Amino acid sequence: MNTAAPIPDPSLAARVNSSLHRLRTVSGVPLAIGALVQRNRALRLDLFSGNTAGVINGVSVDFGHGLGGKVLTLNRPLVVDDYLVSPHITHRYNPVIAAENVHTMVAAPVIVDRVPVAVIYAALRSVTPIGDRTLDAISGEARQLEQQIVAAHAAGLDDVGGDGLRERVAAAYAQLRELTRTVDDHGLASAITRITDELLGDTGPTGQVGELTAREQDVLALAALGFSNARIAQSLGIGLHTTKGYMKAVLHKLGASNRVEAVVIARRNRLLP
């Protein structure tokens, strides 16, 4: 089993940052924090969504200490009802947490190939129980990040320069496909379709895998963003059972055993950007 500390992926920060913004939007927490695992297995708190007092920025959290360090030892999410007095963590960072007026917190690890690569946090400025909505949101974001990282590495398509370019292109592709279905102007719809085709590359699909229907491509495009079946169904305005049916068809046509493998195969065959 590989337990060596990873070298931070420069594209990972962009992915985590996007995840933090989604986490705040979905859960309504005032502060979401992201930290990448460093080579010495410490965490560096330098990704934020929400206002901070500035004290927490750049803090290094050692393995086993505080909430994030404890999460790294457990390799699972952990909630503390009041960070400053919780018996489940060490209190090396209490001065920082107190200065930020943070109390209730939950943290979840992002694990790839059984190795944690990042930790994401949701923080409340009061002693308030973490609800199921926040727990589901942070767990979902952690899993989505894991899927994105695995898919990008497997396809050899990591962003260069850490600017999140590939993630933005993939998101734009999915949004353009959705727009094509909603416009009434046939000429405009055709123009948008040409743009989406250009995002696939100069030659377009290779034809080496089974042809996907338009709706199957829509489902796969959203799966490439790490969307769950429920979120895909909501985005496309279709039922969950129907979404699962489309996903099953995609896996069969591409010869994939899971959605991550399907995304990798689709990108190699220029069915996705």
Rank of each mutant, 00 (worst) to 15 (best):
V16T: 03
N17D: 15
L20R: 00
R22P: 04
L23K: 00
R24H: 13
T25V: 15
P30G: 05
L31H: 05
R41F: 15
R44L: 11
G50R: 04
N51L: 12
G54M: 11
V61A: 05
D62E: 12
F63T: 02
G66R: 06
G66Y: 02
G66L: 10
G66V: 05
L67K: 03
K70E: 08
V71T: 01
L72D: 02
R76E: 14
P77F: 03
V79L: 14
V79N: 09
D82Q: 11
V85I: 13
S86C: 03
H88V: 14
I89H: 01
T90M: 07
H91G: 05
A99C: 11
E100Q: 02
N101P: 00
V102H: 04
M105G: 00
V106P: 01
P109M: 10
V110Y: 03
V110I: 14
R114G: 14
V115Q: 01
A118I: 05
V119N: 02
I120W: 05
Y121E: 13
A122L: 09
L124C: 00
L124E: 04
L124T: 00
R125H: 15
S126K: 14
V127L: 10
D132K: 07
R133W: 04
D136I: 02
D136N: 11
I138E: 00
G140I: 06
L145K: 01
E146C: 12
E146Q: 14
E146T: 05
E146R: 02
Q147S: 14
I149G: 04
V150W: 02
H153W: 12
D159Q: 06
V160Y: 11
D163Q: 13
G164P: 02
L165T: 12
R166P: 09
E167D: 15
R168Q: 14
V169H: 07
V169I: 15
A171E: 10
L176W: 07
R177C: 09
L179S: 10
T180F: 09
T180R: 13
V183S: 02
L188K: 08
A189F: 08
A191E: 12
R194K: 13
D197L: 13
D197I: 07
D197V: 09
L200A: 01
L200E: 03
G201Y: 10
G201L: 15
T203D: 15
G207L: 13
G210R: 00
E211I: 14
L212G: 10
R215Y: 06
V219A: 06
L220P: 00
A221V: 07
A223E: 01
L225T: 05
S228E: 04
S228N: 01
N229M: 12
I232K: 07
A233W: 00
Q234K: 07
G237M: 04
L240H: 11
L240R: 13
H241G: 14
K244C: 06
G245L: 04
Y246M: 03
M247E: 10
M247K: 08
V250H: 02
L251F: 03
L254V: 00
G255A: 06
G255H: 02
N258W: 04
R259L: 12
E261L: 09
A262I: 05
V263P: 05
V264C: 12
R267Y: 03
R270C: 02
L271P: 01
L272S: 09
